[in-house]
């Protein structure tokens, strides 16, 4: 009997892993800069595009195994190129301003980045599944799964734990936590808050781009990818509680599992399931599963 549920759990966890990368970046940026970044999904899409293009180039030149490096290289390139640039020039200007203005500015940025994608990568879909082929397949409850999908679950867990350890155990993590707890006090004791903002935003970009890059071997990459990612990431961040890493992880699992369950047992509801879960959670806990009034923690 339980064997019937195993594929649902596996599919749900794979889905959750991919959602987690985007949602946790979004929630990290919100907790530090208090900005709900609508353009966050564009970094996911850019990560996917760049990873596919670099991967195709490497595969085309016979460096098939090396094409795996594109999955890690492309998010780093995007984070380094866009993170500091956008934070310093655009996002900084919105700090402390009304939330409506922040949303409008980041929505404008989203539109610019979407058009940039079309200019750079064109409008036709891409696919590059070398990683899926290289890692082979496993049979779980009679269903064939690419090992690459299972690897994603492990990677998401590693990133979640790594992020938590980084914030708790490293000097930079403690500085970020201090800024999240009380920005003015942090500034008073000599923490370069401006630098922390750049670091946190760049880390958020890196996580979103990493999500896109890691998803790219399993999906078709085409215009519109970023919009889909951000809508889901917002729902997950709201369910978990804005600014909560553990909340994002739990919410991603919840959304992933309910989406997979819907596809198995009630496919008509699959598109609305994440939002039904969000409404249900917010009705009971208006600040999300891990959120609380007036408390800023990370």
């Amino acid at each position: 009997m339980f064997a019937n549920y195993v594929p649902v759990i596996v599919d749900g966890l794979v889905d959750a892993a991919l959602i987690f990368f985007v949602a946790v970046g979004l929630t990290l940026v919100f907790s530090v800069a208090r900005v709900l970044n609508v353009a966050h999904g564009s970094f996911y899409a850019l990560g996917a595009y760049l990873s596919v293009v670099i991967g195709m180039w490497l595969t085309g030149h016979g460096w098939i195994v090396a094409s795996l490096a594109a999955l890690l290289l492309s998010p780093i390139l995007i984070a380094v190129a866009l993170g500091p640039l956008i934070e310093r020039t655009l996002l900084r200007w919105t700090y402390g301003r009304p939330e409506a203005l922040q949303i409008l500015v980041t929505f404008g940025l989203f539109l610019v980045l979407e058009d940039m994608q079309k200019l750079i990568f064109g409008v036709e879909p891409y696919s590059q599944d070398t990683a899926v082929q290289l890692f082979g397949v496993s049979h779980i409850s009679g269903i064939v799964y690419p090992n690459y999908q299972l690897l994603l679950i492990v990677l998401a867990i590693m990133v979640g734990i790594g992020l938590r350890l980084m914030l708790r155990q490293t000097r930079i993590g403690k500085l970020i936590a201090a800024v999240v707890a009380d920005q003015e006090m942090a500034q008073t004791i000599g923490i370069d808050v401006s630098r922390i903002f750049v670091l946190a935003f760049t880390l958020g970009v890196l996580l979103a781009a990493l999500g896109g890059a890691l998803a790219s071997p399993m999906i078709g990459v085409a215009p519109g990818l970023g919009a889909e990612a951000i809508v889901l990431a917002f729902a997950v961040a709201a369910i978990g509680g804005l600014g909560q890493i553990e909340g994002a992880a739990l919410a991603a699992i919840l959304v992933g599992l309910t989406r997979a369950s819907a596809i198995y047992w009630a496919p008509e509801f699959q598109p609305v399931v994440p939002y039904l879960v969000m409404v249900a959670v917010l009705l009971v806990r208006p600040y999300g599963l891990f959120g609380s009034v007036g408390l800023r923690r990370i």
């Binding site: 599919d11 889905d15 009679g142 269903i143 799964y145 399993m218 078709g220 990459v221 596809i263 598109p271």
Partner: peptide
């Protein structure tokens, strides 16, 4: 089984599992 995923979905992986199951 009858599945109607959204037009333009980037991934059909869960639907594929459902079909195999």
């Amino acid at each position: 089984a009858e599945l109607y995923p959204k037009l333009g979905s980037p991934s059909f992986n869960t639907e594929i599992s459902r079909l195999v199951a």
